[in-house]
């Protein structure tokens, strides 16, 4: 039986091997290690906490079923993220629920939750956060996913390539285009919220980053 005295110090590889041998505590340790990240990632696709928890459970059950197929060449968490991203996109297409649901998030709209000196700044920041979420929700799935992985999950280009199983060059061009799409939407819908809009030379606006900017 696999014993977990200090689970955080046990490498993923050992936990996986033990879980494959039928150790429930080892699999529980894997879940405990990654459940918050998975939940946070899925929370970017579905905002309903109950739905998000169900989806998280679905992800870990799929991990349980497919663990024997995991190739140790890549990091476990990128494999896990791949499953989570696929589950999220499947879930959204299943329920014809292709967009993030905008929730009036009390934390986002609570001016007291931020520490800026100006009383206006927190409101602006909250509005910007809500608008950002709204725009990301409306982006095509491939752009939304790559922005979520890069901007919210802080994955490197290599990790994103691994999760999405695409080439590095594709990661770059897709990410640059996603940012450009985001910027265009922000400029179109809320030009007053575009950060540093006075900084960029006028000739540089509206061009594709992937396709040359003037």
């Amino acid at each position: 039986m696999f014993a977990l005295k200090r689970p955080l110090e046990v490498p993923d590889r050992e936990l996986i091997a033990a879980a494959l041998d039928g150790s429930e505590p080892a699999f529980a340790a894997l879940i405990d290690r990654y459940k918050d990240r998975v939940s946070r990632l899925l929370g970017r696709y579905c905002r309903d906490p109950v739905e998000c928890e169900d989806l998280s459970q679905e992800v870990f059950l799929k991990v349980f079923r497919k663990l024997h197929t995991f190739q140790q060449e890549s990091a476990f968490f990128t494999w896990l993220y791949r499953i989570a991203v696929n589950a999220a996109t499947d879930h959204m297409s299943r329920s014809s629920y292709r967009r993030l649901r905008l929730v009036e998030d009390e934390t986002v709209l609570d001016p007291g939750s931020r520490d800026e000196a100006s009383p206006v700044a927190p409101l602006m920041a909250a509005e910007l956060a809500a608008v950002t979420r709204e725009i990301v929700a409306k982006l095509p799935e491939k752009y939304r996913t790559i922005l979520i992985l890069r901007e919210y999950e802080d994955l490197s280009y290599t990790e994103i390539a691994d999760v999405l199983q695409i080439q590095m060059g594709t990661v770059e061009s897709r990410l640059f285009r996603a940012r450009q799409r985001f910027k265009e939407q922000l400029e179109r819908l809320h030009p007053e919220l575009v950060p540093g809009r006075d900084l960029e030379p006028a000739s540089g606006r509206g061009r594709s980053p992937g396709g040359g900017v003037q």
Partner: peptide, 14 residues
């Protein structure tokens, strides 16, 4: 900004 909000609020704990 949105990440901050997400981590504090809508990243509903399991």
């Amino acid at each position: 900004g949105d990440r901050f909000a997400g981590e504090r609020g809508s990243g509903a704990p399991l």
